[in-house]
């Protein structure tokens, strides 16, 4: 049976050293670079026409833009009086739109690239997802304190809680805040990892049954059906996890902007 873990192996392509740190260009780095090049290439080239009546590619780029813009507006827009009208190009929260968009499209592309057989899934490595989650966490801390000063600490003191349970609630709030980057990164990492292992295991069953020959060969239709269904599910998960990651990013940034509630 083929090793289902083999697909996560890091291949060291170009050994590099950055101030004593191991900055080897690996297959993971290759796919992250590929994703960055593909995304920026697509988004820049598809808009080359800047036409009022968009081409197919331009309208795909615009759809992605509107999709993320709506997500940012819906999660970070409330609390503003002007919710619902205007398209918010000079509202404070929209300056985080490029960050959320980059996170969403980067993860989505990495996840989707990983669905191509033989390709490496960078988001199935904890280092990558944790790096992204920490980026969000640190951004939230910086923005939170820069915008609200110590008022940001109100985030840990929910209003309307009786004074005698307040210490307990504050402790829980602080722990849950600190565990955010963990759940944020592990959710994506574990989903991608588990999905790819499961696919590989079922694909392995097909080969084993076919290899056994005779009546077993006919039985291989079962894991084949399963693997097909799982592939469809994995495409959904690949999109959904990118969406969830971006959505949580919006919600955490919203906390940084409005810690009062």
């Amino acid at each position: 049976m083929p090793d289902p873990i083999h697909q996560f192996e890091i291949k060291r392509l170009i050994p590099l050293d950055l101030f004593g740190l191991d900055a080897t260009f690996t297959n993971s780095a290759l796919f992250m670079l590929l994703a960055a090049v593909l995304v920026s290439g697509f988004l820049i080239l598809s808009m080359q026409g800047r036409s009022l009546v968009p081409t197919r590619l331009q309208s795909l780029a615009e759809m992605l833009y509107e999709f993320v813009a709506n997500m940012v507006r819906d999660t970070m827009g409330h609390g503003h009086d002007d919710h619902g009208h205007g398209h918010g190009h000079d509202q404070g929260y929209m300056k985080f739109f490029p960050l959320v968009f980059t996170i969403f499209i980067f993860i989505l592309t990495l996840n989707m690239l990983g669905m191509i057989p033989g390709f490496f899934t960078s988001t199935s490595h904890l280092a990558v997802t944790a790096g992204l989650a920490l980026l969000v966490f640190v951004t939230v801390l910086i923005v939170g304190f820069a915008k609200n000063g110590f008022g940001f600490l109100k985030l840990f003191v929910p209003s309307g809680v009786p004074i005698y349970v307040l210490p307990l609630v504050v402790a829980i709030e602080i722990i849950s805040f600190l565990s955010r980057p963990i759940s944020h990164s592990v959710r994506l990492f574990a989903n991608m990892l588990a999905g790819h292992i499961t696919l590989k295991v079922f694909a392995g069953f097909i080969i084993m049954l076919l290899g056994a020959g005779g009546a077993y060969g006919i039985l291989s239709i079962l894991p084949l059906t399963m693997a097909t269904a799982l592939t469809a599910l994995e495409f959904l998960v690949a999109f959904l996890q990118a969406y969830v990651f971006a959505m949580l990013t919006c919600m955490y940034l919203n906390d940084a902007l409005h810690p009062g509630h």
Partner: peptide, 15 residues
């Protein structure tokens, strides 16, 4: 280390 460094490079480039 190598993944986080390349994540930083590629993400910064893309951003």
């Amino acid at each position: 280390a190598p993944q986080i460094i390349w994540l930083a490079i590629t993400f910064a480039l893309l951003y």
